[in-house]
Structure formats: C-alpha cells, structure tokens
Amino acid sequence: MKLGISTYSLYQALNSGELTILEVIEYIASLGAEHAEIVPLGFNLTENPELIEAIKKQARESGIELSNYAVGANFSGLNEEQFEKELERLKKEVDIAAALGVKKMRHDVASSADLSISHFLQELPKLAKACQVIADYAAPLGITTSVENHGYYIQHSDRVQALVEVVDRPNFKTTLDVGNFLCADENPQAAVGNNIKFASMVHIKDFYYRSSTDQPGEGWFKSAAGNWLRGSIVGHGDIAIPQVLRIVKESGYDDYISIEFEGLEHCKLGTRLGFEFVKRVWNEL
C-alpha cells in the first residue's frame, strides 16, 4: 500500500491563491506522503499544458509519485452529437494522464436530477458504452480508468458494481471513496466490503452525520435521503475509519490510497491530521 494525498484536499489554498499546484505537491511530500493524486481544481492542465511538465518535475524533486488523474464527465441525457463530443473531450484528458505519467485515471460518468433505479437501468447501456470507449482508448497507454461512487446518481455500491460489470474491461474499475457512500445513505463499512474487489484506487474521506430531523445550519449539505453531512478531518467524523481500513487491508488491496479532506478547518491542518491518523491506524492493524 502507498499512502498519499489528493490535491483536492488543498483546494481551499489553491483557490485562494495561498498555494500553487507546485507548492501543494511540495507540501504533500513534506508530510511524508508517497504519492500525490492530481485533481485539476484550482488549476487547468488543458488550458495550461506547460504545468504538466512542471508538476512532474516538482514530484521528482520532492521524491513522490504521481498516482492518479481525476476529472469530471457526464454522459447522461446527451444526444448523439453531444455524446461524441464528450467522448472526444475525455480522450484528451486521457492524453493528459499519459503525459503526467500516471497509470490510473478517474472520470465521472453521469449526473442526473432523476436518481431513480429505473432511470439508471435505462441509461446503463449508454453509460457503459462511454466507459468502454474511454477504457479502450486508455488501454494501449497502460492506463486503468475508473468510476467513483460520486454525485448521487452513481453513488450506491450496487450501481457502481453494475456499471463496472457491464463495461467488462480489465482496465475499468472503481475509485472507491469510503466516505461518499454516506451521500447515498449507504453504510460505509458494508459498501466498502461490497466494492473493494473492484477498486483501482481508494479515497479515505470522513463526514459528520446528522439526522434529517436536525437543523445543523451553515456548512452542511443533504444526502440523497435528506440527512445532513459535513466534511470532517479523517478520523474526527462519524465514519468508523479504523473498521473501514481493516476491511480494505484484509481484502488484500495493496495499491494507492489517497486522503481527501473537505472540511471547514484550514486545509493544510485538516490534510495533515487526516494523513497522520490513517498512517498510524493502518500500521497498527
């Protein structure tokens, strides 16, 4: 297992201008991380391709690997022309992943206001086709593509499983975010147990959880069923992170794990504390 940090964890500092992406990589390395996962929020590699070589150089100088490249995509509700245009855009993102030298790339697949299982099943063949095209494009480059349990529509463990199995490509798996299952009101321990065998990448994220009958106020957002969530430092929230990590470890998973922080605390503090917590717990298991 190689423990690292997603640049998304430092988005607060990137967005404010406190840190550049190169300084983020340097900070990630300073914490003892073995890898950095590149999420282009707060910077843009399509508009600023010169950053690709700069990021690679900074990672080499900092002594860490680049593990994964994570981008958005949406193939839901598109006509044929829009569908093909989105495919071409995403292929260019695969090219960026290859230029970065990473062998893993997460792309979103769909978002929709209609979260029903019937709508998902209706769209599944089209969504699977999109993933097949991108996985086949990425395969000669040695890249494994993946879908994350993310965005309400394809967030439940069984929907992710269904997509991975219908796509049926050896280089298409899931980026498994242990916290995101709560957004679909699914027990994280059960969901991680269901999907760890499909994982090419694992994100460790934590949330505070309150019932739908509570009124917690600013900083909280609703799950699919109307319960309340707020990002926390990993280990400070309501997810049983040690138990989740035990499931991951006992599964035999031995690849990249990324810390993701999206709490209200300063991102450098939240990232450091979460990283230190996961490193300690993993070593004690």
Rank of each mutant, 00 (worst) to 15 (best):
I233M: 05
N194G: 13
L51I: 09
S146R: 11
V166Q: 06
D206L: 04
M105T: 04
A110S: 07
I38S: 03
D206I: 04
K104R: 11
K92P: 03
R60T: 13
E86L: 11
P40A: 14
H203Y: 14
I5R: 07
D206T: 04
E81G: 04
F207V: 00
S146D: 12
E218Y: 11
V164T: 09
V71E: 02
L3N: 04
E26Q: 15
T175Y: 14
G77C: 06
S116P: 08
T145R: 06
G17W: 15
G179L: 02
G235P: 05
H119E: 15
N79D: 13
R159N: 12
I96D: 07
A135R: 10
L19V: 13
Q122D: 15
V71K: 02
R159D: 15
P49L: 11
V109H: 01
A199S: 11
Y8N: 09
T46W: 14
Y253Q: 03
S212C: 08
D95N: 07
Y208I: 04
H150G: 03
T271G: 00
I204M: 08
C131N: 11
G42Q: 13
L163A: 04
E88T: 06
V133A: 11
T20D: 14
K85R: 12
I25W: 11
G179M: 03
N227I: 06
Q189H: 11
D185T: 12
Q82A: 10
H150Y: 07
L22V: 09
E37H: 03
L41T: 15
V281C: 01
K279D: 00
D177A: 13
K91H: 04
K129P: 12
K2Y: 12
V71F: 01
E84M: 12
R60Y: 11
G151C: 06
L3E: 06
T145Q: 05
N79H: 13
E88F: 03
L285I: 02
W220A: 01
Y256L: 00
N180I: 03
G179C: 01
I257Q: 02
A184G: 14
Y209E: 05
S258F: 00
K126Y: 14
Y69D: 00
V109I: 09
S16Q: 08
V234K: 06
A73L: 00
R230S: 09
E186D: 12
G77E: 11
E23M: 14
S212H: 12
Y256N: 01
E93K: 11
N149F: 04
F83C: 12
V133G: 10
D206N: 05
T46D: 13
N171V: 06
E65D: 12
L245P: 00
G219V: 03
V71T: 05
N180K: 03
E53K: 07
E47K: 14
L3Q: 05
E93Q: 10
G193I: 08
V109K: 01
N15M: 13
V24S: 15
S223R: 07
A36M: 05
Y8I: 11
A98W: 01
G17A: 15
D255C: 02
L66C: 05
K57R: 10
V133F: 10
P188M: 05
S16L: 06
A98Q: 01
I52K: 11
D238K: 08
I247F: 02
D177S: 09
N15L: 12
N194I: 14
